[in-house]
Design a protein around this nucleic acid. Structure first.
Length: 254
DNA sequence: GTTGAGCGTT
């Protein structure tokens, strides 16, 4: 479906594959084709997608007919902003069959070389068969998040979850009680806050917002706000990019 | 509606 009409690899006899990373999740091969075709003869453009959702993974493969054209495209399209995102074009290192690629050119995969290659290619523990795994849950785009969640759940197994559901009073209550005790103790130390809060309003106020005790000076906060955005956006933003790169320094008035 | 390191399909 991602192809222009052919199913599967059309012909990788003498084609150079380019790996395009950092592309938007909505960018399709049809959008990259004209862009890459302008720098050379594009044989095929393929964008790996999820089997379940069918969403793009964020990278695409562009096959060129000649290496010089591919190199030119890499040199020209590498770093360009597509759909408001800076893409990264580089020669593919691995092939569809896990074959090594020389400068984007897929090496000749012979039967006799198979044995020797088989041993050469070891470090590649990549799980590309997600659908094969019966216990697959959600592993499509964000790997970091998945890993993070996995780490967080690493403390217990699924049993904990079931138990929690069955008796969401034992562990949770104990934990919360302890936390409350600790917090209350601290509050009492200050003596400025009433330990007893009959009204849920106060509790709600402390929950979501929870006034940061580190707010020493508002200036620090402003400094911080100015920090998180080192990524400069090129003024040549695409049509979809409607953000205003202005208001950068003269907006710190409060 | 979200996400963001990496290497691919009938």
């Amino acid at each position: 479906m991602s192809h222009f009409g052919r199913s599967g690899p059309p012909d990788i006899r003498d084609t150079y594959s380019l790996l395009v990373l950092n592309i938007t999740f909505r960018t399709t091969a049809d959008d990259l084709f004209p862009l890459f075709d302008k720098y050379g003869k594009v044989v095929d453009v393929f964008i790996p997608r999820d089997r379940r959702t069918g969403d793009s993974r964020g990278f695409a493969f562009v096959r060129y007919k000649y290496q010089d054209e591919a190199a030119k495209a890499v040199d020209k399209l590498d770093g360009r902003v597509v759909d408001g995102r800076e893409i990264m074009v580089q020669f593919a290192k691995y092939g569809p069959n896990a074959e090594r690629i020389h400068k984007g050119k897929i090496s000749e995969s012979s039967s006799k070389l198979k044995s020797s290659r088989s041993r050469s290619r070891s470090p590649r523990p990549r799980y590309r068969d997600e659908y094969k795994d019966r216990d697959y849950k959600r592993r499509s785009r964000s790997r970091s998040r998945d890993r993070y969640d996995r780490d967080r759940h690493h403390r217990s197994e699924r049993e904990h979850r079931y138990r929690s559901r069955s008796r969401s009073a034992s562990p949770d209550n104990r934990k919360r009680s302890k936390y409350d005790d600790e917090r209350r103790s601290r509050s009492r130390s200050y003596g400025s806050v009433s330990p007893a809060r009959p009204s849920s309003k106060s509790r709600r106020s402390l929950s979501p917002r929870r006034t940061p005790p580190r707010s020493e000076s508002p200036d620090a906060r402003h400094r911080n706000d100015r920090s998180p955005t080192p990524k400069d956006v090129s003024p040549q933003a695409r049509r979809e990019d409607s953000l205003s790169p202005r208001k950068s320094d003269a907006d710190v008035s409060s």
